[in-house]
Simulated assay, not measured.
Amino acid sequence: MQAPLKTILFQKTECGVDFLLNVLGGKQQQRRWTNNNTYNTDFFEISFFKKAKGRLLLDQRQVDIGDNTVIFISPFQKRQWPVALEDPDFTTLIFQEDFLNDFFADKLFTYRLLYFYQLDYPLNMTIPADEMDRACHILQEIKTELTATKPDSVHIIRSLLYYLLQKLNRQYAHQHHLPIEKTENNYAYQFRKLLEVHIHEKQRISEYAALMGISRISLNKAVQAQFNVTATQLMKHRLLAEVQNYLLHERLTVAEIADKLHFSEPHHLMRFFKSQTGLTTSEFMASYQNTVV
């Protein structure tokens, strides 16, 4: 019988200051992996592996981990470590979304970072060894400011964190040939955020356009300019990911998933799934099991 999904919550007491932000060493985290169960968290994670060999199952994707690998995990992504890493050396930055958006006075900040809530490109990247050393040095500086807080620590943490996150964003964009943020495309990032909030009950572009107070044409233009896909394609991809997560990690039936996602009939969900993947739900489950064995 499958173990219930465990959600790990951000522990403010581990940090010791009034920040929903922390830097954790590898040994502080490995206890999560020992039972081989699937779990998620309510915070963002960026893990910097200076040395490692192994893999991570993240939602329905397998992520390979090697030396100088950076992994990006968004809140509530399901994960499992099926194989223990071989003597890993890594550090993880964790933070909660609302804290970071408030910290930088930008309610869409986390949605502007290309590596979070990413459905089309890898959730990891390899960086040069010297870049990894620099990133880990910055993390150590942040940790020092968190544990030995001074009156100006908030300003130092803000500058170090902003530099690190934006530097990673630039590297990620370069590796995957993605455009760096276009400031006029706030609608695209707002749409991306609304999808995370409303995907269970809203599956029409007109509904999102109405929430934003713009036309469907304006919304689609902004999404295409920033993400190079239509708003409908982005929404369907996000909906598909939700269906796949329910199948793989919640073990819900098609009828139960259809009810949760407000499909009028189970066969409408099955038709949507087949059109997006070319597979039935049963074929997808069998294919996934064969992949991860």
Rank of each mutant, 00 (worst) to 15 (best):
272 F>L: 07
109 F>M: 10
247 L>H: 01
192 R>I: 09
183 T>A: 13
237 H>I: 15
182 K>E: 10
88 P>G: 07
31 R>K: 12
22 N>T: 07
143 K>D: 12
129 A>P: 11
222 A>K: 00
115 Y>W: 06
239 L>T: 12
255 A>W: 02
146 L>C: 05
219 L>E: 01
150 K>C: 09
285 M>A: 10
171 Q>S: 14
111 Y>K: 02
42 D>H: 03
6 K>D: 05
228 N>H: 13
157 I>W: 01
52 A>Y: 00
227 F>E: 00
185 N>W: 00
231 A>Q: 02
32 R>L: 15
142 I>D: 02
3 A>T: 10
219 L>H: 03
264 S>D: 11
229 V>F: 07
82 P>A: 04
14 E>I: 10
7 T>V: 15
169 N>K: 00
16 G>H: 00
223 V>N: 00
49 F>C: 09
285 M>Q: 08
37 N>P: 07
104 F>G: 08
227 F>V: 10
13 T>G: 04
66 G>C: 05
196 E>H: 08
80 Q>W: 02
55 R>W: 03
182 K>C: 10
22 N>Q: 04
188 A>H: 01
147 T>K: 12
35 N>M: 11
27 K>L: 13
173 A>M: 07
223 V>W: 00
109 F>P: 12
28 Q>R: 02
52 A>G: 09
211 L>H: 00
223 V>I: 14
277 T>K: 04
69 T>Q: 02
23 V>A: 03
125 M>H: 05
103 F>A: 04
258 A>G: 05
53 K>Q: 12
167 K>V: 08
224 Q>S: 14
102 D>N: 15
54 G>H: 03
188 A>D: 02
178 L>S: 05
230 T>C: 12
163 Y>I: 10
181 E>D: 06
14 E>N: 11
120 D>Q: 12
152 D>H: 06
74 S>L: 08
240 L>H: 02
177 H>Q: 12
209 A>E: 03
118 Q>N: 14
228 N>E: 09
163 Y>V: 13
154 V>G: 06
79 R>L: 12
141 E>N: 11
111 Y>S: 11
274 K>F: 12
204 R>M: 14
119 L>R: 04
169 N>A: 09
258 A>C: 10
34 T>G: 06
17 V>R: 02
30 Q>D: 10
242 E>A: 15
284 F>D: 03
15 C>W: 01
135 A>I: 09
149 T>P: 14
65 I>A: 03
160 L>E: 03
47 S>T: 14
215 S>H: 04
135 A>Q: 04
157 I>E: 00
165 L>T: 07
95 F>R: 00
150 K>I: 14
55 R>P: 06
54 G>R: 01
67 D>A: 13
193 K>A: 15
286 A>V: 15
62 Q>R: 05
95 F>V: 08
106 D>W: 02
102 D>P: 13
208 Y>T: 04
160 L>R: 06
276 Q>S: 09
73 I>T: 08
189 Y>G: 10
139 L>D: 02
184 E>R: 06
157 I>Y: 00
46 I>N: 00
116 F>L: 06
283 E>C: 10
80 Q>V: 07
123 L>H: 13
224 Q>P: 09
5 L>W: 01
131 E>F: 12
202 K>A: 08
22 N>K: 03
165 L>Y: 03
88 P>R: 00
176 H>I: 11
237 H>Y: 10
